[in-house]
Design a protein around this nucleic acid. Structure first.
Lengths: 337, 337
DNA sequence: TTGAAAGCGCTAACAC
DNA sequence: GTGTTAGCGCTTTCAA
């Protein structure tokens, strides 16, 4: 179906102007919602736009306005983890959904391990208006001074100044509350499967664990480390059990490791929660349907993504934005504790 | 740090040309790998590019060349599922990784339910060179004739002509093999939790289930439907058990529903695989660490994403590409069967 | 093999 | 309020 015999590709602003009987500038004004246009002109333009099925060309708009209306989502190449981890997946989902309601477009930037400077150069090349970083594993944030606004998920590694606003949950206090819950249930030999200690969530949840036990006067030496994967949780749990000391509760730094621990606990012929009560962290999709359903710390992951997106948009558009946003967690008590 | 006192923002091609002592056209040729440039000129330009830390401006390039070097990843607004589903997450990961090795950029397009035409208009607006569609729930693919190449994950709904190349696994035969495995293990009362029957994977896996049982002369009426979520799996399993007829095996149309079924089976005081053998589909991250580890059909999800990406790039660049790619599945036998 | 020049489709002063 | 006029930074004929 040919819309306009004289045009070859998509209709241009010029075609709209001609059809509406106004100048290109006026069409541009209407498209961009300028208030200084006569109502009748607005109507004429809108009708022409509809008739022609006109869509502004992003590249041209961006070139002329020096804005790209594009936001980069920066994920590490070890993206396996980013997407396999339901928590990150929800954060991404939150970002994407929030942005879908704006005029911004999301582009995914995988940090190439082969060429670590690629990401930074792309950001500095004026191709995006801002960036969202959803991992903290690396401390080499060479893109921090990309000259454009950046928002980070999770607090920066200690010592590293935050390069921009952060959106996070209070991991330490949330972990502390989770462990206190175990203590209140009468558990006295509480172990933990901590996360990697080069990542803030790993560090902070571990700190919360220790705080809770020390406050209760309990031993806090039943510790093994995992890398947030189910398999690492299973391995860590086996090591804890092999110590041969009594354990009546476990705090896992995330749900995936908790689920991994489930299998090790079962292998050992122990039952949950009778022999060992388990609490996780994240409240991912699988925790509610685990057997038994997992008590865990719920993080508002979709909201975190949405917050990051809206903070970034505020920054890009020159509005004020909080430099550190802490979203509330809640302990979801199910049958594992 | 000011690289070049005379320039304000990022260095332009013009600045590179000046520094290298050549024309802008020559710089453009070098950047785009033209072979008709003298080696010494190439070197001079490359050095200038390095010194200036020059990055081509995408918008300008796209405007002039009428190519965008951008590929859209189109996901339904019910993106909750897309990202919560580890299978889709891996597919996306495969797409992203494959594209990271090319000059193409991935932009995520969420199909707005509020304005269903938005996606189509964006695609038709010349903003991307091609699109990858990773869901088939909707039959309204209004973007099929967006005038740009499109690649689809999974075969189209019956009747709907494929609007472009598809990448898929042979769901029917894979399901059939999974069920045959149960039959070979001596199971005779095989139930299934099928997926939604408006989605090809749901349909095809169900068809494979029936085929296998009919070929074995067994009853194929133990069927309940779920929506691929763990919760729906649990509910469906409960309904199956409530029928009061003997069941000694279950084929779930995906792992998430299989895991959901696990809890219903346990609630009923039955054990896996002694009382009921279970086989899933997808081989997602959790299946190996489930208790017991789940026997399942492994899909090469990352490869599927990568295939979609490379097929799309071939199409965009005018190369031939297969219209239907079927990737191999393998039955991973673990302890649940 | 290289340069000059003409746009790509749009925005943004600046006049009117 | 609206039109005119320059470009935004790059690619791409066309000549040389």
């Amino acid at each position: 179906m040919v819309e306009d015999a004289s045009s070859s590709g998509a209709p241009t602003l010029e075609a709209v102007a001609a059809r509406a009987g106004v100048s290109r500038a006026t069409v541009s004004r209407v498209v961009n919602g300028s208030t200084t246009v006569k109502p009748e002109a607005i109507r004429a333009v809108q009708q022409a736009i509809a008739e022609l099925d006109y869509v502004p060309n992003r590249a041209a708009r961006s070139l002329a306005s020096r804005r790209t209306q594009t936001i980069a989502l920066i994920v590490p190449e070890s993206a396996a983890k980013v997407f396999a981890d339901p928590f990150f997946a929800s954060v991404v989902q939150g970002v994407a959904l929030a942005l879908a309601r704006t005029d911004y477009t999301l582009t995914m930037l995988i940090e190439s391990e082969a060429d670590p400077t690629k990401t930074g150069r792309y950001l500095r090349g004026g191709n995006v208006d801002g960036g969202i970083v959803v991992s903290h594993h690396e401390s080499d944030h060479s893109y921090v001074d990309a000259g454009i606004p950046m928002v980070f998920g999770g607090r920066p590694i200690d010592g590293g100044e935050s390069a921009g606003p952060t959106v996070d949950v209070d991991n330490r206090n949330a972990a502390r509350a989770a462990v206190e819950h175990l203590v209140e249930r009468g558990r006295t030999c509480v172990a933990t499967i901590a996360g990697p200690q080069d990542m803030p969530p790993g560090l902070d949840r571990f700190a919360g664990f220790r705080e809770a036990l020390e406050a209760a006067g309990l031993d806090a030496s039943l510790v093994e480390f995992g890398d947030f994967t189910p398999a690492s949780g299973a391995i860590a749990m086996r090591r804890l059990l092999e110590r041969g000391v009594p354990i009546d509760a476990l705090f896992a730094a995330n749900d995936q490791m908790a689920i991994g621990a489930y299998s090790a606990i079962r292998e050992a012929g122990l039952s949950i929660p009778e022999d060992i009560a388990v609490v996780g962290f994240d409240d991912d999709v699988h925790s509610a349907t685990a057997v038994p359903p997992l008590t865990t710390v719920h993080q508002p992951s979709v909201d975190m993504g949405a917050s990051m997106a809206s903070i970034l948009v505020d920054l890009i558009e020159g509005r004020e934005a909080p430099t550190a946003t802490l979203l509330p967690t809640t302990l979801v008590v199910r049958q594992s504790s």
